[in-house]
Nucleic acid binder design. Structure first.
Length: 149
DNA sequence: TAGGCCATCTGGTCCT
DNA sequence: AGGACCAGATGGCCTA
């Protein structure tokens, strides 16, 4: 607390004025404590938000790195990365489906394991094309062979 | 210099 | 209550 706020008032001429002034000081101090507290909370919240956004950017960078390479100096923007990823996944899925039909093989269970919402959510979303696999069972541990074939 | 992209701050809302 | 998430505001940097 600022020492200035705790000093006695030079203008307080009698006890009544002084106690009134003391009350004002208390109110002021309380406000000060509140705003200092709020300030600290805000700084912490800003820090968390910064950290969250850095994590988000890390994830975006990871995504950029696994997408097919563009010319070295052409860094995709965030929105481009997301759109490219969407289109790329769509294209891969389409390719897989064609392959599947031609060879009568089911590759999609392996892909569904990568669903960010987890297997339960995967099932819940599968009818919305989240990562569609009609024959995937969330509580079952799939072997590598099963995932491959 | 205008417009796009980005990082950061901020206040509100929702969740645990 | 505290944290996560979100969207709006703002300012800096870069490029056509």
């Amino acid at each position: 607390l600022s020492p200035r706020l705790t000093r006695s008032c030079p203008n307080a001429h009698n006890a009544k004025d002084y106690s009134e002034h003391a009350r004002q000081n208390e109110r002021r101090q309380s406000k000060c404590v509140q705003s200092a507290l709020r300030g600290r909370c805000r700084v912490k919240a800003n820090d968390r938000e910064r950290h969250r956004m850095h994590n988000l950017n890390c994830a975006l960078n990871t995504l950029r790195n696994i997408l097919p390479a563009l010319p070295e100096d052409a860094k995709m923007t965030k929105i481009e990365t997301l759109r490219f990823a969407h289109n790329y996944i769509w294209a891969l899925t389409a390719t897989l489906r064609i392959e599947q039909q031609e060879h009568n093989v089911d590759y999609l269970p392996a892909l569904s394991l990568a669903c960010p919402h987890g297997a339960e959510a995967h099932l819940a979303h599968s009818d919305q094309n989240c990562c569609a696999s009609p024959t995937f069972y969330p509580n079952r541990l799939y072997s590598e062979t099963e995932l491959r074939y």
